[in-house]
Design a protein around this nucleic acid. Structure first.
Lengths: 237, 237
DNA sequence: AAGCGTCGGCACGGTAGCGCACATAGCGCG
DNA sequence: CGCGCTATGTGCGCTACCGTGCCGACGCTT
């Protein structure tokens, strides 16, 4: 009887909903397991489902000039995938790549749009989330432009840690280089600097965050700003 | 009698509306003159009005680390200012700086939100515009990261020309440097290269576009992509 | 225990763009 | 006509990062 109340709390956008709305929403959802490297959306492809990660997390990536790639946003249990459907647009602008395996709630696009009309609190909450993502996108333009690799790497590790919900991440330098749009050698140098300062430790694709506070200091202010904006717009209650 | 039909056609978001919706909207609008350098919104400030430029155009700027500035979007007669109000959020994330003096339609925030509920075509059109801006933001992250100053400058000049509606722009290197987040000397070099190729001519703050096609070739593909997306999502009819 | 693929450290020369500073040159104003 | 302001050109040394390629180390497989 109470099981329905325990499960959905895992996604922060859904957790704070009134019971009626959440139950109606959950009734249309299915739980899916996402595997590392899976592509949820291709740019400009028709959007058939919307995802609410529970313990998985997904990178949103711009593909430019054919082969250049750059991560511009990330979604985990604090967010959702398929935000353009909030606007009634049935395609996603970005490549959505599963970066942390785990489960997510999934809902059919048509049902999602219908429920949006019937669930005012959900609708408002998702519009606020969309706003947060937009502002973060704008910040990211400037962050990528002005901040050095080391600070951006620190920010990125923190964001990932928040979404993964563990201090133990599985990431190679190669992968990080693609996310930040830089050389692998560039990541090696930055990661080495963070490790030397005792903030992280890594070894063959396993990164452990040792000192979160120090990592925040090493990152640019963009990380703290992102968090503050989310907390302000989408309080957990 | 027909005057109401002539004026509003100037803004592309409003021009394509059914008469009923447009008339209702226009009834709440006032025309204002915007002057160069005027600030329409400060980041995180309460949003009292929404603007639909007619022949003015406005830069949306991220302010980061206290003093760094970078333009991340632009709005002219093809767009609007105050997009977050489409989502029901009464603050803007960015600094809105009038870059081309001219007129704009202005509407009170409360009336705007009310009209949105009563005008389905307008609402849908604005949601599509918001999507376009979001995708352009994402593209801009990558553009600023991967493309060189010269290409970005060319793109920027083209975007500005479209919004100014003339091949004669008033812009100093100093100003361009701020928009692109680079040194003035960097702009001098890039502008000189474009001038040498016969694409533009400039002199003490006056820039003339001589060869639009050539300028498009000199710019990165981002310009053409932006245009294509807008045309696809918001056909002029 | 040997082999092999993956991961990370490192070195090389090259380049875009930086910060700074200074020089020139139109243009308006008295 | 000359003064001063603003806009532009340019030079210098410097930094961050690039592309490439190599090598060693680890650890999984057989």
């Amino acid at each position: 009887m109470t099981s329905i109340l325990n499960v959905p709390a895992a996604n922060q956008l859904l957790a704070a909903l009134p019971d009626v709305e959440r139950n109606a929403f959950m009734a249309e959802c299915e739980t899916v397991e996402l595997t590392f490297g899976e592509v949820l959306f291709q740019p400009a492809e028709a959007l058939t489902h919307v995802y609410f990660p529970i313990d998985s997390f997904i990178s949103l990536i711009v593909v430019i000039d054919g082969d250049n790639r750059l991560e511009v946003a990330m979604a985990g249990q604090e967010g959702m995938l398929g935000i353009s459907l909030i606007l009634g647009i049935e395609e996603e602008p970005l490549l959505a790549l599963v970066q942390g395996a785990g489960s997510a709630l999934r809902i059919n696009a048509a049902n999602f749009q219908r429920l949006l009309l019937e669930s005012p609190v959900l609708h408002q909450r998702l519009k606020r989330y969309l706003y947060v993502v937009m502002k973060q996108l704008a910040t990211t333009v400037a962050c990528n432009h002005f901040h050095r690799i080391e600070a951006r790497l620190a920010r990125w590790l923190l964001m990932t840690q928040d979404r993964a919900g563990t201090d133990h991440l599985q990431l190679t330098h190669e992968f990080l280089a693609m996310m930040l749009g830089v050389r692998r050698a560039g990541i090696t140098i930055a990661a080495l600097a963070l490790q030397t300062r005792g903030l992280i430790r890594y070894h063959r694709g396993e990164i452990k965050v040792l000192n979160r506070t120090g990592l925040i200091e090493a990152s640019c202010a963009c990380y703290a700003e992102d968090r503050a904006l989310y907390a302000k717009m989408l309080p957990t209650l």
